[in-house]
Amino acid sequence: MSGRAVVVTDSTASLPPEVARARGIVVVPLQVVIGASVYDEGPQGATPEMVAEALKGFRPVSTSRPAPAHLAGVYATIAAQGASEILSVHLSAEMSGTYESALLAARESPVPVTVVDSRQVGIATGYCALSAVDVLDAGGDVAAAAQAARRRAELATTLFYVDTLEYLRRGGRIGAAAAILGGALSVKPLLRIDEGRVVNLDRVRTSARALSRMEDLVVETAGSRAVDLCVSHLANPDRAGALAGRLAERLAANLDGRDVWCGELGAVLGAHVGPGMVAVCLAPLLGGAPSAQE
């Protein structure tokens, strides 16, 4: 990384580890607190399975941002390895204090740090980081890479179904969707990320209808654009896999041979949505930019 800019993101960006490594993206973990134990998010710490099991067992689960001092240490290490600048891309500041931690850490960095609030969550933030790397790899500067990250975030659509709003309510992440609490807890909520917050999109009577509605909305939103697509879930692999398969067929022309990513949601986001959640992120490609999988 000597002499060049480096992209940093956080673990909620849900990038496959091999993709982050291949693209030179540094991933900083958020933390999950289960009972009295604190874990870094990741395969060697808090896993989606641990979170799902704890939630099902009614054990207390919470999450926390990286401390500014920790991020400052990451920036210092990257600088010591020869980086000339850092672009730090993180999940919505409306949902987490990670962006604030990054701003505070940037003040202590020995090299310039540009911090981007993606105003997204999950793989949508990951796609922002990938678009930033695309620009840097093509010879662009950090300002252009940050602009690409923000533009990719604006284009992305994140929809998700949850079995219940209870976990979002507990974590205080429900935002404008609070308007459908109460009686709505007996229906199946379909939600989306809008301006960095969770908002209500629709209410249906069954999970099958919710997933069907989400599928149709994703296809409608894609239109004729070239896209990257990811289906995520927490403890709901069969339904997520089936949805990914149907979307791969219906959006074959949009994907142009690119795979639909499908996997379990990370532990931090999983703690706020609960078991059974299924999400779809549709991220149109930027003009002339490589896809996430190239």
Rank of each mutant, 00 (worst) to 15 (best):
A46W: 07
V74Y: 02
E154Q: 14
P284Q: 05
V38S: 15
A54N: 02
G223L: 03
G122K: 00
L234R: 09
R4N: 12
K56Q: 15
G196M: 10
A143W: 11
R150Q: 14
A76F: 00
T157R: 15
A124M: 10
S186W: 07
V218Y: 03
R203C: 01
R203D: 08
A76C: 04
A132T: 08
P189S: 02
L217W: 07
Q81Y: 08
H233Q: 11
P60T: 03
M95K: 04
T206F: 01
D238K: 14
Y161N: 09
V26S: 10
G57K: 14
L71T: 06
R258A: 08
R65E: 15
A253V: 12
G139H: 08
A176M: 14
S109Q: 11
V231D: 07
A143N: 13
V113C: 10
G288D: 06
R250C: 07
G73S: 06
C281I: 11
E294Q: 15
V89E: 00
D163R: 09
E215M: 07
R192I: 00
V121D: 03
A145T: 03
V27S: 08
L286K: 06
A80T: 06
V218F: 00
L201D: 11
S37D: 15
R21I: 09
N200Q: 13
G287N: 14
A153H: 04
S2E: 14
E220M: 06
T12C: 08
G287L: 12
F160H: 10
R239I: 02
A129T: 09
G24P: 08
P275T: 03
A129E: 10
S232E: 12
T77W: 03
C230E: 13
G82H: 04
A102V: 01
D256A: 15
G263L: 02
L185N: 15
L55Y: 05
V260H: 06
V187N: 06
L103G: 00
R205Y: 01
A248F: 00
L136K: 02
A105L: 09
V162W: 06
P43F: 11
R213F: 09
T206V: 01
Y75A: 06
P16L: 05
S84K: 13
S84E: 08
P275D: 04
V227Y: 00
Y99K: 02
Q44E: 15
Q147N: 14
A235V: 11
G276H: 06
G241H: 02
V204K: 05
S11R: 05
E108P: 08
P48Q: 11
A149T: 07
V32D: 02
E264M: 11
T206Q: 08
R21G: 09
R21L: 12
R173Y: 08
L181D: 02
P66S: 03
Q31T: 12
V142I: 10
G257P: 04
G196N: 02
T12P: 06
M95N: 10
Y99D: 01
S64D: 07
D238N: 13
L282N: 06
A20K: 07
L217Y: 08
R119P: 04
A20V: 01
I34R: 03
P60C: 05
H272F: 00
N254G: 09
D216C: 04
G57L: 11
R203M: 14
A13V: 00
A54W: 02
R209V: 03
V187S: 14
